[in-house]
Each structure stands twice: as C-alpha cells, then as structure tokens.
Amino acid sequence: QTVHVKGVQYHFPNPEEAVKFALKVAKDLGGRVEFHGDEIHVE
C-alpha cells in the first residue's frame, strides 16, 4: 500500500497502517485523503 503526501511516497505492508497514517497526516496538514485503487493520496 502506497501513501502519497506532497510528492513523497510512503510504503506500508499493511493497508490498515497506511490508512491510519494517511488520516493522521491529512488531519495534521488540514488536507483530505483520496483513495485511488491501491494508492492513497493526501491532498
């Protein structure tokens, strides 16, 4: 599972961890989380 944050990719073997990370980052940055297939983008 890959999380993209402002052009940087973070790889997580566990999808659940990836989602938790993405939600935390989005909250910290005041952004939103978008799901694109296997990828999660924080915009």
Rank of each mutant, 00 (worst) to 15 (best):
Y10E: 01
I40G: 01
V5S: 03
V25R: 05
L23A: 08
H36L: 11
K27M: 13
V3E: 00
D28N: 09
Q1K: 14
Q1R: 15
H11M: 08
P13H: 12
H41P: 01
E16D: 11
G31K: 03
H41D: 03
G31W: 13
V42G: 01
G7N: 07
E34N: 10
Y10D: 00
A26S: 06
I40K: 01
E17K: 05
G31C: 06
K27H: 13
E39V: 11
A26H: 02
E34T: 15
G37V: 05
Q9C: 06
D28L: 13
H11N: 09
G30E: 06
K6V: 07
V33Y: 03
K20T: 08
A22T: 00
K20E: 12
F21C: 03
Q1L: 15
H41F: 14
H4C: 07
P15I: 15
G31T: 04
N14S: 14
F35S: 04
K27V: 09
N14E: 06
N14H: 06
L29V: 09
I40N: 01
V3D: 00
V33A: 04
V8E: 09
A22K: 00
V33F: 04
V25S: 06
I40P: 02
K20C: 09
Q1Y: 15
E17C: 05
P13T: 14
K24F: 06
E39Y: 08
P13R: 12
H11G: 04
H36P: 03
A26R: 02
E39W: 08
T2A: 06
V42E: 01
P13Q: 13
Q1A: 15
A22E: 01
E43A: 13
A18C: 03
F35Y: 12
Q1N: 14
V33Q: 01
I40V: 05
K20A: 13
R32S: 09
I40A: 03
A18L: 01
E34L: 13
Y10V: 04
H11L: 09
K20S: 09
V25I: 13
T2M: 07
E17V: 07
L29T: 14
F12V: 01
H41E: 03
L23V: 11
Y10I: 06
R32D: 04
H36A: 08
H36G: 04
